[in-house]
Each structure stands twice: as C-alpha cells, then as structure tokens.
Design a protein around this nucleic acid. Structure first.
Lengths: 214, 214
DNA sequence: AAATACATACCAACCAGTTGGTATGTTCAT
DNA sequence: ATGAACATACCAACTGGTTGGTATGTATTT
C-alpha cells in the first residue's frame, strides 16, 4: 500500500529516514539527538515516536533504507556493462572511486559508521548494518567468481573473501579520509585496490594501468 | 617497573587513561560517560576534573597515550629482524594479523574508532587521532622505500601511499570484524594485503604464478 | 605554608520517551 | 446518505533520569 506518490511532500516517516542518514553519518549515532532528527525532518517528537518506537528503531530502519538506496544505485550503475568479468570488477572499483566526492560525511557508509560505534551496545543495529554490508558483498561475488574461472587464480583465496577485502579497503578509506579531512587518501586506496585485483589476474608482463574510460 | 608491584598503585591519571582506552574502544566516545570512566578507573569525579579539563581532553590525551603504547609495541616487535626489507614489510603484516586475538574491542584501534565518530564534532580529537594513525604510517615508509629500491616497483605509487593503504585495510578490517562479530574476516583482509605486497614486488616481467605457494 | 591530589555534594542543561490531545480520513450498519 | 466507531498521522507540553561540569572541602606531600 504505497500512497507516497499521491502526496505532495514526502511523509514524515520518509523525512525522518533521510534525516537519519544525513545526521548519523555526519555526527554518529549517540551524538545525534531525537530532537535534532525531528528538527532536520521538520516534524515533532510526537510524530517521531508515532513512526518509530525508539531512536534505535530509526537506526535499524535507516540501515535497511540505506541498503535499498545503495542497492538501487549500484544495480543501475554502468559498471555492469563490460562483457569481460574482470573489467566489470575493475569498473566497480572505479565507480566506488568516482563516488568519493565532497566531504567524508557525504561519501562515507552509514552502516560502517554506525556499526563501529554501536556493535556492542545494540545487537539489532549491529545486525542490520552487517546485513547491509555483507549483502552488498554478495552483489560482487559472481563477477569475481566468473573472473576467477576465466583468468584462473590462486586457490588459497575465495571470491567471497575478495569481496569482503574490497569492502574493508573502502571502509578503512573512509576512516582515513575522516582523519585526514580529505578524500584524496581514500582515492589512493581505491587505486591500490584496483592494482591488487589487476595483479591477481595478471599472469605475464606487468602492464601499467590504462588511461581508463573504457 | 611493574604496575602492580609493592609500589603505590598507578596514579589516578594513569588509571583514567587506561579506562579511556578500554571504554572508548568498546563503547565509543559519546556513549561513554565521565561517571563510567571514573568508576572503571576507581576515582571520583573530582579526581577526573583535577587531571583533565574535560572529557574531550581525556580523549586527546588517550590518543597520545595510545600512540606511545602502540609505538613501543611495534618498535620492539620482532618484524624488524629480517635483513631483506620486503621480508620486514611482510613480517609487519603477519604481526598485525597475529594481533587479531579476542574480541574486536580488544584488537581494534582507539584512534580509528574515535576519529570515525568525532571527526566533525571535535577538531582536537580528530587531529590527535590523525597524528596517531599517520605517525604510525611513518614507521613503515622506510622499509617500503628500501623494498622499492631493492626490488623495483611501478612509479605510479609511492611508499607513503602504500603505508596509508595498509592502515586503511586494517581499519576497514576492524569495522568488518565488528559487523561480523568475528575476527576471521579481519584475518582474511591481512592475507589479501600480504598477497598484494608480494605481487607488487614480484618481477614486473615474467610469470609470477609459476612455483607460487602463497 | 603552599601546592598537589584527591573527595563530596551539587547543578543546570539535556536526554529519550510519555502523555493527552487534535485533525483527518475510512468503515460500515442503518 | 449519514452518523457512529474506529484508525492513522501528527502535535505541544511534560517527565524522570542522566549528563558534563563546578564549588568547596580535606589529606598528603614538598
């Protein structure tokens, strides 16, 4: 029963979810108050607790919302186009690199930010964030598996473990970007990750990276 | 200099620093209250504000303390022994992997945890954590530079950028370990990082996969 | 004597969550 | 077609407990 299209401005629930993504990513979960969320969403506290039983419930719903938003973004992203699976994996990394625009609060991961802070205090939040992160890994595993079969690869590592490593590099890149106050260090990490994937599937002749743009 | 010998017990300031490392790493900065820190350290609030002007000041002092503790740990670690610089770098990664014991709160990084949460709210905390992280990178750069000169390497990346990538992998590994509730995923990331470094310094020309054994 | 190192008691602001209410539908027997 | 019964969406004011921080005291060291 989606009546959202009929309404002019987004519902209070929707605006609270958007506020959660913005504020939790910028300030962290604990430092963000319910009043701040209400103010950012333009709703009252009564509306907040009408739609969410607690601040924690908004955090969990926010993780699911974040997962669906990013899921849609990556699903329709252009990196799936190459016929060669290795090129799709490299294009994914380039796509992630291209996303590193603006401030850390704008490109960092909601799930990674919240789980680091709340993994012990809130099992529900931990699990919602873990699902978000590892489900995203699942969207990469087929391309990597196809690359393994087409190019051959060492059997000591699995496609799934490389997807997790990829997410770790990105999550760590966000941390370093926040520390440095600059996205440049995160871009560097994407380049190292790309080089790793290239080297993993390169048998002969070290070729310097291509100019890119397919 | 044993802390628990017949001498007096550690000073209140020292115990507060130890409490800061334990609680901030486990619960995050904002969710940890001054009262909790005092209770964990076995001191009163008066003692707290005698030694630190604010909770934030304890956070900053904790970052410096963390930097000196880890600095000493890595300085006397055995990974410096190999004569070959590449072996020293690989031994560093193996040492980091060996450190992944117990719960995430026990092996994660104080600086990484705090800077992710507080980089916007507290510039002082952000800078103290950034110094901690990037100073540690500095302890690796010479070994990597020596490896570059001895083995040769692509000029598109620098030794300093590889130290930062290394820290990103570790910081991201901590995030994923917190999400998964298991250190295994972090160990995997160390293995991928080790493989990357190995591949970087394998002959740029020739078949790297023959005779490979991880 | 005077600084240092604590301890006790306290506070104003703030916090997540509650209460009791209004406005606007929607359902359905009459 | 209409009005009672009910449901949804939202609001302003309030509450009990918590927060970081302070004021003021006392014991110990120098």
């Amino acid at each position: 029963m989606d009546a959202t299209s009929a309404q002019r401005k987004p519902s209070a629930r929707q605006r609270l979810l958007d506020a959660a993504l913005a504020l939790f990513r910028a300030q962290g979960y604990t430092a963000t108050t319910v009043d701040q969320l209400c103010a950012a969403a333009g709703v009252t506290k009564g509306a907040f607790f009408h739609h969410f039983t607690s601040k924690e419930a908004l955090g969990v719903a926010g993780a699911e919302y974040w997962g669906s938003m990013t899921g849609a973004l990556f699903e329709q992203a252009p990196y799936h186009q190459p016929a060669d699976p290795l090129q799709r994996v490299l294009a994914y990394i380039d796509f992630r690199r291209a996303l590193l625009q603006g401030t850390p609060a704008e490109f960092c991961c909601y799930a990674g930010t919240l789980v680091q802070e709340m993994y012990q205090a809130s099992p529900a939040l931990r699990e919602a964030c873990a699902t978000c992160i590892f489900d995203h890994c699942g969207t990469l595993v087929e391309d990597i598996e196809a690359t393994r079969q087409q190019y051959g690869a060492d059997e000591v590592w699995t496609a799934a473990s490389l997807t997790r490593h990829t997410q770790a590099v990105l999550q760590g890149a966000f941390v370093l970007a926040k520390a440095a106050g600059d996205a440049a260090v995160a871009v560097e990490c994407c380049e190292h990750l790309r080089r790793y994937v290239e080297l993993l599937f390169k048998a002969p002749v070290g070729r310097p990276q291509t100019g890119e743009s397919a």
